[in-house]
Lab assay of single mutants.
Amino acid sequence: TVKFKYKGEEKQVDISKIKKVWRVGKMISFTYDEGGGKTGRGAVSEKDAPKELLQ
């Protein structure tokens, strides 16, 4: 599970739902399947990112 803040809201998403991951400076950005055909997005700092996300 990845915990992150998006627009001031605390969120979390299961690693299995993450589609795409990329690095922006010291942040790790990602998109994930929100269900219902929607794609969500989020970002975590490199130090807070789970190891599975960095692979």
Rank of each mutant, 00 (worst) to 15 (best):
K3Q: 08
G8V: 02
D14Y: 09
G37Y: 04
V24N: 12
V13T: 06
K17V: 08
Y32T: 01
L54S: 06
E46P: 07
E9Q: 14
I18T: 02
D33S: 06
D33K: 04
V24Y: 12
A43R: 14
L54T: 09
D48C: 10
K5A: 07
S29R: 15
G36K: 08
G25L: 03
I18G: 00
G37D: 05
V44P: 00
W22Y: 08
V13K: 01
T39K: 06
G37C: 05
F4N: 00
Y32H: 02
K11R: 14
L54E: 03
G36H: 12
S16M: 11
S16F: 09
P50V: 04
K38N: 09
Q55I: 14
V13G: 01
G36L: 08
K11D: 02
E34F: 08
E34W: 06
G35V: 08
K38T: 09
I28L: 10
S16A: 13
G25D: 05
Q55Y: 12
V24K: 10
F30G: 00
K19Q: 10
V21C: 08
K19P: 00
K20F: 11
G42T: 02
I15F: 09
E10W: 15
G35Y: 05
Y6L: 06
R23F: 08
F30L: 01
F30T: 00
I28E: 00
S16P: 05
G36V: 07
K7F: 09
I15K: 02
K47S: 10
Q55D: 13
L54C: 06
V21G: 02
G42A: 07
L53P: 01
L53T: 01
M27S: 06
K20R: 12
T31H: 04
D14L: 15
K47M: 12
Y6W: 14
Y32W: 09
V2C: 03
K20W: 09
K26N: 14
S45C: 14
T31E: 09
E10R: 07
K7D: 07
D33G: 03
K47G: 10
D14R: 08
A49R: 01
T1R: 08
K17Y: 09
G35D: 09
G36C: 10
T1L: 14
S29P: 02
E52K: 08
L54V: 11
K47T: 10
M27I: 13
E9P: 02
K51S: 12
E9C: 08
L53E: 00
Q12H: 10
E9I: 15
E52H: 10
E9K: 13
W22M: 05
Q12I: 15
Y6T: 07
F4E: 00
V2K: 01
E9F: 09
K5T: 14
V24D: 11
S16R: 10
D14N: 10
G36I: 07
V13Y: 02
V13M: 04
E34K: 11
M27K: 07
G25E: 03
S16Q: 10
K7R: 13
S16Y: 09
I15V: 09
S16N: 12
Y32R: 00
V44I: 15
T1E: 06
V2H: 01
D48N: 13
S16D: 10
K17C: 11
V44H: 01
Q55T: 12
T1S: 11
I18A: 01
R23E: 02
R23H: 07
K11N: 04
R23S: 04
T31I: 14
Q12P: 02
K11Q: 06
F4C: 03
G42Q: 02
M27R: 07
E52Q: 11
D33I: 07
V21K: 03
V21R: 03
I28M: 03
V13L: 06
D33T: 06
L53I: 06
E34N: 08
K11V: 09
Q12C: 13
K38A: 08
I28S: 00
V13F: 03
Y32N: 00
E9Y: 10
Q12A: 11
Y32C: 01
L53H: 01
T1A: 10
V21L: 07
K17T: 11
K17F: 10
K26M: 11
R41C: 13
K47I: 11
G42R: 01
G36T: 07
V2S: 01
K19W: 11
K47W: 10
K26R: 12
K3T: 12
V2G: 01
K20H: 13
Y32A: 00
K5E: 06
K38W: 05
V13P: 00
Q12L: 11
G40T: 05
T39R: 08
G42V: 03
D48V: 09
S45G: 07
P50I: 05
G35P: 09
D14W: 08
R41D: 03
V44E: 00
S16I: 12
K38R: 13
F30E: 00
A49Y: 04
Q55K: 14
K3N: 09
R23C: 05
I28P: 00
Y6E: 06
T1G: 05
G36Y: 08
D33V: 07
K19V: 12
K19S: 06
Y32P: 00
V2D: 01
G35N: 05
K19I: 14
V2W: 03
S45K: 12
V13R: 01
Q12M: 12
E10H: 11
I15E: 02
K20S: 11
K7H: 12
G8N: 07
I28Q: 00
V44D: 00
E52T: 08
Y32I: 02
I28W: 04
M27Q: 06
K11S: 03
G35K: 05
D14H: 14
D48R: 10
K47H: 10
F4Y: 05
V2N: 01
T39L: 14
V44A: 02
L53D: 00
G35R: 04
D14P: 14
Y32D: 00
D48M: 09
E9W: 07
K51H: 11
I28V: 07
T1D: 05
R41M: 13
K38P: 03
W22D: 02
D33A: 06
F4P: 01
V44F: 03
